[in-house]
Design a protein around this nucleic acid. Structure first.
Lengths: 186, 186
DNA sequence: CCGCTCATGTAACTGGTTACATGATTTA
DNA sequence: TAAATCATGTAACCAGTTACATGAGCGG
């Protein structure tokens, strides 16, 4: 099923993340990829079977992953690994700055809510911001732990990822503190 | 079409943002809502007709907005405004901290890429991070301008929203600088 | 042997997207 | 009078989601 223009394949973010997971975790089942997403500390995707199984079959059809059916006992099991084309596509996806505006500007759902904050009474608004601040603050310790658990020397990229989540969360906490302060004198 | 349990309606983020836009911009057409989204400095949605028109009709069916058909000349035009129930639903949506994990942790697509950075050669990795850093940095000035254009005294919530985008972007720049520094000695 | 985890998969749905289509009004 | 903008809408598609279904293997 190998296509002659593999390099032209532009995967979605989930497809790329799946290729990446297969690349990192060596030969592994679709099931273990699901667990990888399900247990992710920053759950971008649900890791639902309905997403992963059809997706990985598509990757196989495109020649980006190869499966080895290792039937242990009567239990069927397909172990996937990246093909050369798979690595090429992943490499291309990682190295290419996408034209998606989200690359330059991330979305914060709290921003949308705060934009309409005036529909609440000052009292309600204050309560909401306080609650939001508390919820976001409560994340800090576990994000800090994620950084500590992945020291730079041991796993650079995992550390960088954890660090990204932490720094952005710190920025949001500071922002919410500003908002709380800004609405207090009214 | 008014439901007796309006308060139970939980809108999507786009639905809530549409209610908010109608609330802020007074009686206005679906078209102007679209422009609102199209011209947004932080484009979360495309503002596509295929999204807005069916959506606002749904809101009307639910009794959250009311339309006045003001046919100027031969041109049909529906001007929407919030109903009491619409305001109630919007108020509820704004004031309620959603259980969505994104409330506590925002997603950064660059985080995913950096997580798989090791698939690139050190040289390629360095180039990529430099390019990403430049792209994100280039946003700073226009985000700063958005803040300046909406002074706190004049439009608090618009200022807060602009400030959110700026602070998160600053955090991302700092993060990318860390990453660049971290991969330079290798 | 009961319940949990491993492992694979499908069906129906959702909340959007792009692209297309129509026609009135305004502006250069 | 041609082009741009205002204004409304539909059809086909897309990348996910939840919920359901099946069955093997393993631990208490």
């Amino acid at each position: 099923m190998t296509r002659n223009n593999d390099i032209a394949i532009v995967p979605t973010e989930l497809e790329a993340a799946t290729l990446g997971a297969v690349w990192k975790n060596g030969p592994c089942t679709a099931y273990s990829i699901r667990q990888h997403f399900l247990r992710s500390p920053s759950p971008r995707w649900s890791g639902s079977a309905g997403a992963i199984y059809p997706l990985i079959r598509r990757l196989e059809d495109q020649g980006l992953v190869r499966a080895t059916a290792t039937a242990r006992g009567k239990r069927r099991q397909r172990d996937y690994q990246l093909t050369r084309q798979g690595r090429a596509v992943l490499r291309r996806w990682v190295g290419q700055l996408s034209p998606d505006p989200a690359t330059e500007l991330v979305h914060d759902p709290l921003r949308t809510k705060i934009f309409f904050l005036d529909i609440l009474t000052p009292r309600q608004a204050k309560t909401f911001v306080k609650n939001a601040l508390e919820a976001v603050r409560n994340r800090l310790s576990s994000l800090q732990r994620d950084c500590d658990d992945n020291p730079v020397e041991k796993n650079r990229t995992a550390y960088f990822a954890a660090r990204n989540a932490l720094l952005i969360t710190v920025a949001r906490v500071e922002w919410l503190e500003e908002v709380l302060h800004g609405i207090s004198d009214s």
